[in-house]
Each structure stands twice: as structure tokens, then as C-alpha cells.
């Protein structure tokens, strides 16, 4: 198939940036979206132009590195997938495809489609952990039974890959889905409950300092999340936060 790509080009964080148009030919429907981008880049390199910078690594939907806003949607059309899992069979011959970076104040553009998501790391550093050292002398793993339902819910929250699609999708650039996933995971497990209050307060504080917006409950983040992280987690985070701030 032959396609027209409209891609955001921006030299560096200070450059204003603009959309550029690139035609690509003979794209196989079995290619992944990033393989299509590889074809474009090889074309650009061989004709002496600057290839399009984009983040990617595992190309199997788990590292959370890839981050394209395709035709107005984080990770493009299709649900429950990252950009690297999107295949060209989702498009038609002759389509025009718009490709942009995540756009949020807390995710400044580094180049073209590459953004800086270190704000996410700083939110985790504010409390997204259980404070245990690696002594090898913790108690036996089966010493505290955890109800399967809680363990499963904690797991579902823990599957967040930290890609930032929720932020890119939200009209307020809120990071609540991301932050609540970690707060929920740890609050649901006995090992994490000990520090639950302080964790909720610290992580929310850091989230606000990074310049993420607030949640206005539109639920768009949940729809676009490649891992299906539930909005329920935001409710749980609010509860944890409220509990922590009133006691």
C-alpha cells in the first residue's frame, strides 16, 4: 500500500517544530507501524535527509518506550496495544496518517517524536516502593497469605508500562492513571500497606510539582491505555489520599 505521512519534526526542545509530509510506497499490511517508520527512515538516510527520531526498544508492547500520537490517538487506532504492536493492516491504501509526539508540559520534546518522560521517574522516586532492603533475611514469601482477589487486582494495576499514553490523551495532561496504578498496587498488598499514607501524599505532591493537570473524570486515559489500567485505580488513589490527609 502507498501512504502519505504527516510527521511532526522538531530539531530540539527549543525549536518551534512543524508538520512535514512524506510519501511512502509498497508498505506491506503485515508490517508493524514502527517497521513502516524504519522503511521511511532508510529512505531518508539514503537520500541524504535527516531520519525521524522516535523512541522504541522492545517492539513487543512491554517496555513502554514507544510513544506516538497517531491520527489523534495515543498509540493509534486499536485498543490494548502500543505503537509497536500496531500493524499496517489497520490502515488502507492511500491513507494520510498524522504522527505527533506526546504533548504535555511535563513531557518536553527532545527531538521530533521523542519526549522526556523523566517526570514519571521522579513521581516513583517520591514513594512508589516498599522500604525494604535486600538483606536476604526477609520472612518467608508464604508467611503472609494474600487473598487471590487482592493479588490479582494489585497485579492488574502493576502491569502499567509507564508509556505516558494516559497523559498524552488527557485534555488536562493528568498523570492520575499512572500514579494511581502504583499507589493502588502497593495499597492492595499487605507489604505495601505499612507506608500507604505517606506514599499517597508524597507521590501526589510530586505529581503536582511536575506540572501534570488534574483529573476531570472523562475516562479517556482508560480507553487509550495499552494495558487496560482501570479508572477504578484513580478512585482508590483518591480514597487513599483522602484517608492520608485527614488522619
Amino acid at each position: 500500500m502507498n501512504l502519505t505521512l504527516k510527521i511532526w519534526r522538531q530539531k530540539n526542545s527549543k525549536d518551534k517544530g512543524k508538520m512535514e509530509t512524506y510519501p511512502v510506497k509498497d508498505i506491506s499490511p503485515d508490517m508493524s507501524f514502527l517497521e513502516m517508520m524504519d522503511v521511511l527512515n532508510n529512505q531518508l538516510i539514503e537520500s541524504g535527509q535527516d531520519p525521524v527520531a522516535f523512541d522504541h526498544d522492545c517492539r513487543e508492547g512491554i517496555c513502554g518506550m514507544c510513544s506516538m500520537f497517531i491520527n489523534g490517538e495515543a498509540h493509534g487506532p486499536g485498543r490494548g496495544i502500543t505503537t509497536c504492536q500496531l500493524h499496517m493492516r489497520s490502515f488502507k491504501d492511500g491513507d494520510t496518517i498524522y504522527i505527533e509526539p506526546w504533548r504535555a508540559a511535563a513531557f518536553p520534546v527532545i527531538k521530533d517524536l521523542v519526549v522526556d518522560r523523566s517526570s514519571f521517574d521522579r513521581v516513583i522516586q517520591a514513594g512508589g516502593y516498599v522500604s525494604v532492603n535486600t538483606s536476604g533475611n526477609t520472612q518467608d514469601a508464604n508467611a503472609i497469605p494474600v487473598p487471590k482477589e487482592d493479588a490479582d487486582k494489585a497485579f492488574d494495576a502493576a502491569t502499567c508500562i509507564g508509556c505516558g499514553a494516559c497523559v498524552a490523551t488527557c485534555k488536562n495532561s493528568s498523570a492520575m492513571l499512572f500514579v494511581s496504578a502504583k499507589i493502588s498496587q502497593l495499597a492492595l498488598l499487605p507489604q505495601g500497606k505499612v507506608e500507604a499514607k505517606q506514599r499517597a501524599l508524597n507521590m501526589v505532591k510530586q505529581m503536582d510539582e511536575e506540572g501534570f493537570g488534574n483529573c476531570s473524570n472523562t475516562g479517556a486515559c482508560e480507553v487509550e491505555c495499552p494495558k487496560g489500567i482501570s479508572l477504578e485505580n484513580i478512585a482508590r488513589m483518591n480514597r487513599e489520599y483522602l484517608k492520608a490527609s485527614t488522619s
Partner: peptide, 25 residues
């Protein structure tokens, strides 16, 4: 020899391993 410690350590960190209905791993 140290393999068993890894599981203890990870559970203490809040790694949500699969569990049975009785709550054990």
C-alpha cells in the same frame, strides 16, 4: 542456594506473583 531468598525479597517489595485461592504462591 540463594534462589529461595529472591522470592522472599520480591514478595517483600510488593511484587504481585500469581497466587492460589488460599492466598499462597
Amino acid at each position: 542456594e540463594v534462589s529461595a531468598n529472591i522470592i522472599d525479597q520480591c514478595v517483600a517489595q510488593g511484587v504481585p506473583f500469581a497466587r492460589e485461592y488460599g492466598g499462597l504462591l
